[in-house]
Design a protein around this nucleic acid. Structure first.
Lengths: 217, 217
DNA sequence: ATTATCTATAGATCTATAGATAATGC
DNA sequence: ATTATCTATAGATCTATAGATAATGC
């Protein structure tokens, strides 16, 4: 066959195809051979673009974090509301690619994460959030986001609520309090974020005035 | 050789040996053959005790969560303080076994988690925490815990602070705010938990009195 | 008779490389 | 001359099973 007129493979296309395979069939099912098949290409051709399998997997992890971060465009509005919505978007991206979660653990895309922190710091500063609160806020939200993604992604995708099906006789106290709540994972994430943001940055009347005046496009 | 007088293998011993291998050499390095070697035993002998590899890995995930939960003994004292310390213990257990993190994702030990919720609900009720706050509190803390474990476990184990080494010229805003803070992962977890707990359950004077009187052994 | 080990091995993968071939771009 | 594909294959693993063997416990 020899070299084709149009390249059949690009690194980016390979990352996307790999993610598709992982989304559809799970991380265990992924292999270089499986990826080649998905791209209608032969295995050694992929090794022309990548040194080893780990390079592909790291690219997939990066792709997901870029997708999660890409939505963080900070439209105008009160920063808590905007920040909450953007974090939910990031959470959705991670849950959408739940099968790939271990990759984000194994190949943390540091530059993407650092870039996201950098921009969010700048926006929060412009929005008038006191400087000493900013790092606290971002790091806490990051923990909450990653935890919620981890928990939701590892949960049974078919179950409606947050808890898996359980025998109420075996866990009576849980049955009593869980029965009262019908929150899903996303509601829970929002509630946790709001409580946390209000805790770090209480809505003092003067502060609201400052924040409202310091909004950013 | 035939059957030995004393059994060489128990399921529990196998789980522990597997965890040792994973802690020491990583999840990738784990195989049934590697486990057999670690236990000075042959591969088919392990298949006498387990149907397949996944059964072993699920047991490892369970073992870690039991270790994380085992410390939750609720000594007497103000519930926020006690709850914070117990959550830090659980976090430490997970970070100690960071290499196994993907297993907790892949084989979530539901019964252990449900049991932990059940007991914690009972204790918080006895400590006088208002009923409607309890589920909110436990679920939020769970997210924060899992997120902090995920983030800390995927971080460079050698780096001192929370952020990986980065070029301050590339991320100036981050450099400015991060330079001011010298928190490590554990400090950060504690700060986030406190903020969250105070947010869900503010320290009203009357409530403090009730809580103090309702402590549990 | 049952249980817990072993030896031996089937059979399926899977990663990665060597070397041929044909299109491209200087 | 370089680049991007292919064919062919080495070589390493890895999971799991079949069947022999010897100790146990009824």
């Amino acid at each position: 066959m020899g070299r084709p007129s149009q390249p059949l493979i690009s690194r980016d296309a390979a990352f996307r195809a790999a993610l598709t395979v992982i989304d559809r069939e799970g991380l265990e099912a992924f292999s270089v051979a499986r990826l080649a098949e998905e791209m209608n290409v032969k295995v050694p051709s992929l090794y022309h673009h990548f040194r080893h399998k780990g390079e592909i997997l790291a690219g997939v992890a990066r792709l997901i974090m870029v997708e999660a971060d890409d939505l963080k465009r900070w439209p105008r509005g009160p920063w808590k509301e905007v920040f909450e919505n953007l974090t939910v978007s990031a959470w959705r991206a991670m849950v959408r690619h739940r099968n790939a979660m271990p990759l984000i653990f194994q190949f943390p895309p540091r530059s993407v994460v650092l870039g996201s922190y950098e921009r969010n710091i700048n926006v929060l500063e412009k929005k008038g959030v006191p400087r000493h609160q900013i790092l606290r806020l971002l790091q806490g939200m990051d923990s909450i986001l990653m935890g919620a993604a981890f928990v939701a992604a590892s949960a049974d995708p078919d179950s409606t609520g947050v808890f898996p099906a359980f025998d109420p006789h075996a866990f009576p106290a849980l049955a009593a309090v869980a029965g009262a709540s019908d929150m899903n994972h996303e509601d829970l994430l929002r509630a946790t974020m709001r409580t946390f943001m209000d805790g770090v940055s209480p809505d003092l009347p003067e502060e609201n005035a400052v924040t409202a005046g310091a909004e950013v496009a």
